[in-house]
């Protein structure tokens, strides 16, 4: 009985996190971009510092008509946002927030699980791109798929480096084995992982699949209203998951001063710092061209991750 209740509570908690944190990140993005780019618009809604901008956005999305193109494959078109969103929800389950079982579900192969589930998310983009019956959407979907396939490999390799260092694929196990010097040791892997994560999320500068100057909005061109909002939500959720994962794997997660009681705070701080970094990068860097994007994955990230793997192996052998 207690286990059932426990599971229920954990699930609700995860759901809450899932529903709240991405919105926070979204709001942050608005604000940060507004400040960085000197935009005035987002500063008005709601009076103080434009706090209601996100609410206004939400209301706007909810009010919009939910249009399905006549030539589209209706079911898949409608299913696509859910497929895009759900994996991040599932991924959140396995990410530890704090020490002592402060997480949704401790999984033996947590890292593996998270990466596997995140890989499913690409299906949503593909479905959306194909079902829209729109050439730009299809191109966007195909670009998404190609990009995700390409960046999944360095991401996995970088994660494998950490798992190798820790000797386990359990996320809690990894955090348990963490030492502060892992940060410089795995810094290259962390860079690769984070950049690959950005690419998985199709965030700038890796937003070629949704490049509005070329293919309008890629796979999401035909979406309006709430379904479009769901895609945006999945993007923010993705930022959350990627940031959290990076924090857990490379920045020590809840490790920090007074980790026993304030571990969750450290974790949140690190996560949001990374999320801020994501936003910052978006505002800072220009978009990579499609071929540059692919070349970057195959000629920079993969060799780097392999080098990191080798380094990890060597150090691991030396230590033991």
């Amino acid at each position: 009985m207690t286990t059932t209740l426990d599971a229920l509570v954990r699930c609700i908690a995860v759901l809450l996190v899932f529903l709240v944190f991405p919105l926070v990140i979204g709001q942050t993005e608005h604000k940060v971009m507004a400040h960085m780019q000197g935009r005035l618009g987002p500063m008005y809604a709601g009076g103080f510092h434009g706090w209601a901008q996100l609410v206004a956005d939400g209301v706007k999305f909810a009010q919009k008509e939910d249009v399905v193109p006549s030539g589209a494959d209706r079911k898949i078109f409608q299913l696509a946002p859910a497929v895009a969103l759900l994996p991040y929800l599932l991924a959140l389950v396995a990410i530890p927030l704090g020490p002592g079982g402060l997480l949704g579900q401790s999984l033996d192969a947590g890292l593996f699980f998270v990466l596997a589930v995140m890989g499913v998310g690409v299906l949503g983009s593909l479905m959306a791109g194909w079902a829209s019956a729109n050439k730009f959407s299809l191109l966007g979907g195909i670009r998404t798929a190609a990009q995700l396939m390409a960046y999944e490999l360095p991401m996995l390799l970088a994660a494998a480096s950490v798992a190798m260092a820790a000797g386990t694929v359990s996320l809690t196990g990894i955090l348990g084995a963490f030492h502060w010097w892992w940060v410089p040791w795995q810094i290259v892997g962390g860079f690769v992982f984070f950049v690959s994560g950005l690419a998985e999320l199709q965030r700038p500068p890796f937003d070629m699949p949704v490049a509005d100057s070329e293919i309008i909005f890629g796979a999401y061109t035909e979406y309006t209203g709430l379904r479009f909002a769901l895609f945006l939500l999945s993007e923010y959720a993705g930022i959350l998951v990627v940031s959290a994962l990076t924090a857990v794997l490379f920045l020590g997660g809840w490790h920090g001063p007074m980790a026993g009681s304030l571990g969750w705070l450290w974790m949140l701080l690190k996560t949001f710092a990374l999320a801020f970094l994501v936003i910052w990068i978006r505002v800072t860097y220009p978009r990579l061209r499609e071929d540059q994007l692919m070349r970057f994955a195959w000629t920079v990230l993969i060799p780097l991750s392999l080098a990191q793997l080798a380094l990890t192996g060597i150090v691991k052998v030396v230590i033991s």
Binding site: A109, F112, L115, A116, G119, V120, V122, W130, A146, E152
Partner: peptide, 23 residues
């Protein structure tokens, strides 16, 4: 382990490839 490998490889990669091929 096999289960997650199944998800990672089949659902995440093979089916994406298949969809790719179909498109």
């Amino acid at each position: 382990f096999i289960a997650w490998v199944q998800v990672l490889i089949y659902v995440g990669a093979v089916v994406v490839l298949v969809l790719f091929g179909l498109m």
